[in-house]
């Protein structure tokens, strides 16, 4: 199978969003994003109006991938978290098992210790849900009836997408 193969159903999205909301509140964060290992934003919470979520998620996943190679070079299998310290705003990028990434942005209203604690507390629930999402996605691949919500795409639909753009 090509691609991320991720199929996110509404109930899973809501449950993951709920967890991300809880993490944001408990960590006093500015915003939190849950990202899959391929760099797709899954759920988010907080003040992200001006931010490009797609770019943010891709860069975070790229960062984690590059750091994993660094980890192996020094004899670790992986680093579980990356911390970027700014003058006012800071980022913690934490691996959730091997299934997802949590990116937490925070400022002086919180602290690295608090954010790390909250990530550790909520991480297992996020991991469990993400594993469920991945299992469901795989099942959707194999299960005929589960894919009924996907639109029937015709050649005309595809041509219409391009319109006069190209």
């Amino acid at each position: 199978m090509a691609g991320s193969g991720l199929v996110l159903h509404e109930d899973d999205f809501l449950n993951l969003s709920r967890l991300v909301d809880v993490l944001m509140r408990q960590a006093n964060a500015r915003f939190v994003t849950l990202i899959d290992r391929n760099g797709q934003p899954i759920a988010w919470s907080g003040m992200m109006m001006q931010l490009d979520r797609t770019a943010l998620a891709s860069l975070a996943a790229g960062n984690v991938a590059a750091t994993e190679t660094l980890a192996r070079m020094v004899g670790e299998s992986a680093f579980c978290a990356l911390y970027h310290e700014g003058e006012r705003d800071h980022l913690l990028i934490a691996s959730v098992g091997d299934v997802a990434i949590l990116l937490i942005a925070f400022d002086e209203r919180s602290s690295l210790g608090l954010v790390r604690l909250r990530v550790r507390q909520i991480g297992p629930s996020v991991e469990q849900l993400m594993r469920r999402v991945l299992a469901r996605s795989q099942a959707d691949e194999a299960n005929a009836s589960a894919r009924l919500g996907v639109p029937e795409i015709t050649d005309e639909d595809i041509d219409n997408l391009f319109g006069d753009r190209f």
């Binding site: 691609g3 991720l6 199929v7 999205f13 797709q40 919500g149």
Partner: peptide, 15 residues
């Protein structure tokens, strides 16, 4: 297979 997000009604293809 692309990322299908039913909640957001989005299909995302990574090329």
């Amino acid at each position: 297979m692309p990322f299908i997000n039913y909640a957001q009604r989005e299909i995302t293809c990574k090329l």
